[in-house]
Amino acid sequence: MTAAIRVGSRQLLLVVLCVLSLYPLWFMLDTALKSPQQYALNPTGLASHPTFVNFQSVFSQWPFLTWVRNSLVATVVSVGVATVVAMMAAYAIVFSRGRGRELFVRTNIALMAIPPVALLVPMYTLMVQLHLINQLPAVIIFYCGLLVPFSVFFFVNFFREIPFELVEAARMDGASPSRVLVRVILPISGASTFTLVIVNAIFVWNELLIALVFLQANGSRTLMAGLALYQGRYVTNEPLLMAAAFLSVVPLGVLYVFGQRFFVRGLTAGIGK
């Protein structure tokens, strides 16, 4: 009896937490399906006459697809470059014997905790001098730099788990360092790399402050910067804003549903050993 109550109350706790976790998303979708008048009359109730007009408006009245494209480009390029750069560095750190290797790793760990905002003014002036303001490369360069420390750290930890004999054997056979990386290391790094890519991609996709400052032109904004800037203009049209917000969340939701084990693995690998 008491055991049943205990289990029941635990289930209840988790159900409540799940409802709280999902409610804002539900609110977004529900609101997006209403007309502004319906929302004003009944902000919390179910959309009685669902309309897709808000979703259509997001695409027809906003440069939404341009923003999505910009976000995709920024994400793919910065994550791609940072991943390759970090992988090469980590590979060299783990599988060679240069001096200062531990210093390099520790520097990366320390830099992971630097607040990006502290770099904002100098990076902005640098981009001004390079004439890159309002262009995607401005944020891509910055994002790359910000992603490298964690990525190096991640790969160093992963590579250290790889039996050294594997690498040594390939070298004995005369393989060059690049060949060892491509033929030996890469094939066994797929899942880990994918995990890192997801974690980094979420950071870039969701980033607001840098995009807000560096990308002022409508055509160069990322999705988050566009959303934040249109908030002011459309604040009195709740359904339209919620439709846009919901659409900006969808790609992550889809990624999560299909790649959830990578998220969890990425977050938990190496813990508790």
């Binding site: 902005y124 001004v128 004439h131 303001i133 002022q216 032109a217 800037l229 002011g232 203009r233």
Partner: peptide
């Protein structure tokens, strides 16, 4: 190319633009 601004961006956007002389 018309870029509509909002109450919340009209000043800050131009301030930024003026620093980089772009926009």
């Amino acid at each position: 190319d018309l870029v509509p601004q909002s109450n919340t961006t009209i000043i800050s956007s131009f301030k930024l633009a003026a620093q980089s002389k772009t926009g």
